[in-house]
């Protein structure tokens, strides 16, 4: 069995435009920026902007219809395309913890505008932290990485969450649990696979099957 690594980060620069986008605003005006700043400050005071990730490095065998990880195989031509140039991959589970969920819940009942901003912050933060994690990993190991790919993307069934959880034990390592509907708690959690090796085959939104996605570019 491969070893499971654990990393935590705080303090990665904030991308306001992304937060605005996740909150459903196409432009970032001063009023919205002020609201985001207020929420960021509150989240920071509540120590809700911390990121944890646990991951394992696995040998993989890329086949036409999926990727074999030894202990299990993920059926997905989409994943196989993204990992075409890789013979190793990182499997990860990451989370912002319950702090941001507490804020979302708190405001959800009394001030939905702030709940909306907090949930946008949570999404922006975890994606930015993951980007940062990838940059660090590339630097430290002198490798290139393929685009990250998560269960539920394209033709990779969400049910593979179960395998990811068996492998990484995120319940114990970073406090993320999976329910019977394959939903993770805390809500701002992301699992996925990152191939070691150059980027390939991923055309971004154009490659995704969610044709009605509101964020589709």
């Amino acid at each position: 069995m491969n070893e499971i690594f654990k990393v935590e980060y705080t303090d990665i620069p904030v991308n306001y435009k992304e937060i605005a986008r996740y909150a459903g605003a196409k432009t970032l005006d001063d009023g919205l920026k002020a609201l985001i700043d207020k929420c960021l400050e509150e989240a920071d005071n509540a120590k809700a902007l911390k990121f944890s990730i646990c991951y394992a490095l696995e040998d993989i065998k890329v086949e036409e219809d999926g990727v074999d990880f030894g202990v299990f195989k993920f059926q997905s031509a989409g994943l196989a395309r993204v990992l075409a140039y890789s013979c190793k991959a990182l499997i990860f589970a990451s989370t912002m913890g319950v702090g941001i969920d507490k804020l979302i819940r708190r405001y959800s009942a009394i001030e939905p505008s702030k709940a909306l901003i907090f949930q946008a912050i949570g999404t922006e933060r975890i994606e930015s932290f993951l980007d940062y994690f990838e940059e660090q990993y590339k630097k430290e190991n002198g490798v290139e990485l393929a685009n990250r790919f998560s269960p539920g993307f394209g033709d990779l069934s969400l049910s593979y969450q179960k395998e990811v959880f068996v492998l990484l034990k995120p319940e114990k390592n970073i406090g993320v649990t999976l329910n019977d509907s394959l939903l993770m708690s805390p809500s701002k959690s992301v699992t996925g696979i990152i191939g070691i090796g150059k980027k390939n085959g991923n055309k971004g939104c154009a490659d995704c099957s969610s044709k009605n996605c509101e964020f589709r570019g």
Binding site: A25, G31, L32, L116, I117
Partner: peptide, 14 residues
């Protein structure tokens, strides 16, 4: 008409 966005809609609603 997409001249205002969701955060503003919510602030007004509140």
């Amino acid at each position: 008409n997409k001249t205002i966005y969701l955060p503003q809609l919510l602030l007004s609603a509140e």
